[in-house]
């Protein structure tokens, strides 16, 4: 059973000629890590806003199709109601951190949900620990680094204990190390807590092997979705969609074209590449002996 189900949805912003989304269907399942990949203007942000009901409840436009969140149409929820089910961290962290301390920021959501203070305190501590920023508790959000702001933005939706968290381009401001750490945390949330995690990005290098499913978007349409190797076509196709292909995919394609490995041995990420390359080396050694 999916938690969010989007059926043949099209959406056009007011006064725009082209639709931002055309006939998109997508399901989000419990505990999965879904990568929503697409270039600039692919419609990622629009889709993210749809996953937590901001479209159509706050942001208006011409909408067709069905958006079902936890069994009910998203438009049937009262204001703020969907926040108990879906947490969204916006593309721009600056517009979502508006309090004076990290702790207040994380408490803001549960306070709106009328959670008792002792319980809020437990949740704040938990969310800060999960995101690894417990030591910043009394700091001012504006004093944090880009990566820390991003973690704080996620902690402040985690404290509402949603079933799904949607992150719109969370990796942009991070260095490679920070990206890997954050993805590690998100993957643990999905595996251990059963929270569905949706990450929108224009590149997928760092988490190709961690995500369960990939959905590729281009020009408002969902091009493909499925397991990473199924959804991701050739690196050239990705490039035409404005998506930066995984670096190892380029290597893999080269090795296939040079007949070093077979199509079946193609790889996208580090782990699989290691396996394939090791077997290749073993074979070479075997050949020599």
């Amino acid at each position: 059973m999916s938690i969010i189900s989007i059926r043949q949805v099209s959406f056009r912003y007011p006064k725009q000629d082209a639709p931002a989304l055309s006939n998109v269907s997508l399901d989000i399942f419990p505990g999965e890590l879904l990568a929503l990949i697409g270039g600039d203007r692919a419609g990622k942000t629009t889709l993210c806003h749809m996953l937590n009901g901001l479209i159509p409840n706050l942001i208006r436009g011409e909408l067709a199709g069905e958006i079902i969140i936890d069994g009910k149409p998203s438009s049937s929820y009262p204001q703020g109601g969907i926040s108990r089910i879906v947490g969204l961290s916006l593309q721009d962290p600056e517009s979502q951190l508006f309090t004076a301390t990290v702790e207040e920021e994380v408490a803001f959501g549960p306070e709106n949900l009328s959670i008792p203070p002792e319980e809020i305190d437990r949740r704040v501590t938990w969310a800060l620990e999960v995101m690894g920023i417990e030591n910043l508790r009394k700091k001012s959000p504006s004093a944090l680094s880009g990566g820390q702001k991003q973690r704080l933005a996620i902690a402040s939706v985690l404290s509402m204990l949603p079933k799904v968290i949607v992150l719109d381009e969370p990796l942009g401001m991070l260095d490679p190390r920070g990206r890997r750490d954050l993805i590690e945390i998100l993957s643990r949330l999905a595996k251990e807590k059963g929270i569905s995690v949706v990450i929108s990005e224009s590149r997928i290098d760092e988490f190709i092997e961690i995500c369960d499913r990939v959905a590729i978007m281009h020009n408002g349409s969902l091009i493909s979705s499925g397991s990473p190797s199924d959804a991701i076509a050739s690196s050239d196709t990705l490039k035409t969609y404005g998506i930066e292909p995984p670096r190892l995919q380029i290597l893999s394609e080269l090795m296939i074209s040079e007949n070093l490995i077979s199509q079946k041995q193609s790889f996208l990420g580090e782990r699989r590449a290691n396996e394939v390359l090791k077997s290749l080396i073993d074979r070479e050694k075997g050949g020599v002996v």
């Binding site: 901001l54 517009s95 959501g109 009328s114 305190d121 509402m160």
Partner: peptide
């Protein structure tokens, strides 16, 4: 930015409950 702020307020459950608690 102000559009972002209102989106963020709603996403964080602003207005979800008639009474608010305080941490």
């Amino acid at each position: 930015t102000s559009e972002g702020i209102s989106a963020s307020l709603v996403s964080r459950g602003y207005g979800a409950s008639p009474v608010r608690t305080y941490h």
